[in-house]
Design a protein around this nucleic acid. Structure first.
Lengths: 329, 329
DNA sequence: ATTATATTTGTAAACGATTTCATGAAAATT
DNA sequence: AATTTTCATGAAATCGTTTACAAATATAAT
């Protein structure tokens, strides 16, 4: 594979000149430009990003850290990240940790080692100490999941208020036995959404019952199925359930249907995220809509600004309660 | 940020020695090793991938080209790609073309420019000429979508046989009015699956009717909804439908439910892929199961072998018809 | 004690671009 | 015509590694 020197030789100019026509930084006379372009063409030369990256001390790569792909929530966010990044000359290095600590370390080292110019993390189970250390030297933005104790900029929604709104919706429909499928409460949004859930119940003087709170190990469909199975085995069954993720809610919905119960009459279901599938279930799912695409887009914007040395501020985005058939006939 | 020279100076050795302890290639005496490790620690040194990559003329990055994330089919494949890649010291550069030709060109150039050591393409609407040219000089593997006329190695299933089997399943159930929701037939698998559809009908002397064949522009849920809407407007409605993607099938299923028709009694539905959702619909979806994860895993294996200079052969993987409630009570 | 061999280490040249600085040629000004 | 200014180009340094080769040191064999 030809390099810039060979092109220069063939065109009878210096490599500096070739570089100049490549990046058209400084003026180059049209005669030499043509000579160079001809040489490039003939040698089928393509400049090496490896050389360029080293010289420029940048990779123009953004590391995107997620726990798993299997939740469409993340893929929507990634869409937003990618659109902004590409439009601004960056590309995405997608990294899935799968809750694997050593993988996580590998990925964090990639930004430490300058393979990526910065990182957007949506990964909850991160090695916090390492993350803080990294954030001191490298641009990092947190998306959707963040840490109150750190000053790493983030983009998220007001989870507490959103959960409150969802649960209040159920209460307004007359429900009093409202179950809650939460995720691991080591994660901030799980704690925040629980607060919202409890605040709504408290406000209407509905006692909080531990048996109606399920802390799921994962966000897969089957976790939702399992949660609902547990609720339906109880002596005193709930009449509604609020899940912190559409995937969980859909699993719960499935299990409810399976048992021959009617949704929403026997069991109302509310999810969280508004993934595209939530509109395809039968019945369709009432859910808290997060602006996934925009969150990703904004996070990318913040990251690239940060790489360029501009200061960035955390952003709280709007959410919306989308009412569908799983709560209302 | 400290570089290898500074570490060398601090440890009182040469940069070559530092490099050696970093990569433990050659033996280094334990006393100097300790000195070096101490210096690394003190300077919080992290080797730059940029320098390393240039020197080694490799990026250890694999470009994965897809049309869109929004189909879970691809994310499952990517899971497989990522697992194999990471286990073998490579990382994934995820690139979504969104049917945008200029984006596609940008991405292909990334491998031409050595930003990636190779590419796995699952992108159907590729600039074929450019792709062939690229494949002459760079390792490329096609996954799920391939081209008969090129000798670029691929991993796929026998689409014709799989479609045949799916349609035959419907015929065996007594259906004769079987509609077909296909994708753009410029894509090989769409042509292959259509062949399978037609072969099954022919074999049972069922005439092929154009009005029951719908060529969708996309693979989103709403495309499936639209297709079914069209079928249900016909004078002579089908009693079964076979869609080339679960997303389309799920959309079709949704629309059928919406109209108050019973699945499978009034309308049987068969999908393709076996994405995880397909088991969460109501009723659950009969579908052709593709080994997505394994396909991705294998493709990554082939690509990395190819990067290492080993010859690779195309692979045809097994599929399976998963019978669920959307065709059988 | 001397030589032969094995083990560590250092020197310096890559890898392939970009860019500062200097220089020569051309154009503009006097 | 002489001087200044602008423009186009090249030489060489630089980014941060790795590694072939040479040199120095330690160990083993005589």
């Amino acid at each position: 594979m030809a390099n810039i020197q060979e092109v220069a030789r063939k065109a009878g100019v210096s490599s500096a000149t070739v570089s100049r026509v490549l990046n058209n930084t400084t003026a180059v006379s049209s005669t030499t430009r043509i000579k160079v372009e001809k040489a490039i063409e003939e040698l089928k030369y393509a400049p090496s990003m490896l050389g360029r990256n080293l010289r420029n001390s940048e990779s123009r790569l953004l590391l995107v850290l997620i726990h798993t792909f299997s939740n469409p929530y993340y893929t929507e966010i990634i869409n937003g990240i990618e659109d902004y990044s590409i439009a601004n000359g960056y590309n995405i290095l997608l990294c899935e940790t799968d809750s694997n600590a050593s993988r996580e370390t590998t990925f964090l080292n990639m930004v430490k080692n300058k393979l990526a110019d910065g990182m957007i993390s949506m990964n909850p189970t991160v090695d916090l100490e390492k993350l803080t250390g990294l954030a001191e030297k490298h641009p990092i933005i947190l998306c959707s999941d963040y840490y109150e104790t750190m000053e790493i900029p983030y983009v998220a929604i007001d989870n507490e208020a959103a959960a409150y709104k969802a649960v209040k919706h159920l209460i307004k429909l007359g429900h009093e036995k409202i179950a809650f499928i939460n995720f691991d409460e080591r994660i901030l949004y799980a704690r925040q959404r629980r607060k919202g859930y409890e605040r709504a119940l408290n406000e209407f003087n509905i006692p909080i019952q531990d048996q109606w709170i399920y802390n799921s190990q994962g966000l897969e469909f089957h976790n939702g199925v399992q949660a609902m199975r547990k609720f339906l085995q109880l002596e005193e069954k709930p009449t509604a359930v609020f899940a912190v993720s559409d995937t969980l809610a859909i699993g719960a919905l499935k299990e409810t249907n399976e048992r021959g119960l009617n949704v929403p009459d026997d069991m109302a279901v509310v999810g969280f995220d508004n993934i595209s599938f939530s509109n395809m279930t039968n019945p369709t799912l009432t859910t808290v809509s997060q602006p996934m695409y925009n969150m990703g887009y904004k996070a990318a914007e913040m990251l690239i600004d940060s790489i360029k040395g501009q200061p960035v501020e955390s952003v709280i985005m709007d959410y919306e309660l989308v009412m569908r058939e799983s709560t209302i006939n």
